[in-house]
Design a binder for these strands. Structure first.
Lengths: 194, 194
DNA sequence: AGTGGAAAGTTTACACTGTCAACATTGGGG
DNA sequence: CCCCAATGTTGACAGTGTAAACTTTCCACT
């Protein structure tokens, strides 16, 4: 269909897809170079030509994960919504993605498995962050007299939604009554748009 | 010195200590049953008698991690401090512990490595949560008309500090100006004690 | 057209892992 | 005193990632 530059088809993309499939089906434990290669019908050593090492392959998978993550955050964003509603929708998308893809989500934020020095991964991660950062413009959690109020608001929102998603995925919220992320965002901190 | 119920001394405790040492020195990757056993001078199969499997040993290590975690949160708690100051101190202890023991912190919240059905682990984790929950009594992030305001405040605080610690440990805050956790807690949401 | 070489994939080997079964050793309670 | 359960060892096994040597394919250049 697309390009076929060599004799067996579009590996690299097939390896990525197989990796994500195994990740969803069997979790991070079941994700091995040999399993991915086997699912693509190639030898266990073939992935090295495209990704160098397992770490490189996991980094590429995480990069694709951030792209889907950003898309999930954008899906609930209607044009007519208020900034508060858009923020709640983006955070809900963040948490929903983590819940729907727990192994991928865990991989995406694991310095143990991924190489955050990789430019592609860094760019994809920054793109996800930028979505929350953009929406949070005009909202303010600042204490009087402290600088960087915009940055601090962004860090607060990112930390809040990321911790919420992580703790829920780990099962630490199981004994508590359920509350969507919107019910945890303090209403009193919203500021009307100017 | 302590008790010596069998012919080689107090393994189990030695294995736990060796595991934590390796965790700090070499990270989660370097933590293997054989490495732990080797550091204690026993064969690679000895830990099975005390912990059953690697998962059991990691669960026990995480349990000890939660005990130290709770202690780190309590260290900054002075009796004379206001509730706001005590909250900020506990959260600072939470984040500092995560920064000082990144591998242990990662292990403690990894459903992949730990068995959260283990009663000891569950109790230790709940004890850590209870510290934040107790301090947050009297503080309120509730929207009017929603139930469970106490629970929601606790979830918000826990999510915020956990996400902050996790994202900072992953290096995702490296490009942003530094802000201690207290500068991210919104001041406007504090409520005076009654 | 034909050839050289780089890209893509295979094979083989190696060190390492966790788990298991069979075996050795020890120490304490009948 | 002696047996037995707890503790620890040995050896084997399937599985992992990595690396080197090898083979196959295809593209570019003369």
């Amino acid at each position: 269909m697309t390009s076929r530059p060599y004799h067996h088809g579009d590996l690299k993309a097939a390896l990525l897809a197989a990796g994500i499939d195994i990740l969803e089906a069997q979790g991070l434990d079941g994700l091995s170079l040999r399993a991915i290669a086997g699912r693509c019908g190639v030898s266990h050593s073939a992935p090295k030509n495209h990704f160098g090492s397992l770490r490189g392959l996991l980094t590429a998978i995480a990069t694709e994960g951030f792209r889907r993550h950003a898309q999930a955050m954008c899906e609930g964003l209607g044009e007519t919504a208020t900034r508060q509603q858009r923020l709640a929708a983006a955070m809900q998308g963040y948490a929903d993605f983590a819940q729907a893809n727990p192994a991928l989500f865990q991989l995406m934020f694991s310095k143990q498995h991924c190489d955050f020095a990789d430019p592609a991964l860094l760019q994809a991660a920054n793109a996800s962050y930028a979505i929350l950062a953009d929406i949070s413009t005009g909202l303010d959690w600042a204490k009087a007299g402290l600088p960087d109020s915009q940055t601090r608001t962004q860090m607060m929102l990112w930390s809040l939604v990321h911790g919420y998603a992580s703790l829920r995925n780990a099962g630490l919220f199981d004994r508590l009554p359920e509350h969507p992320i919107g019910y945890i965002l303090p209403a009193s901190t919203y500021r009307e748009e100017s």
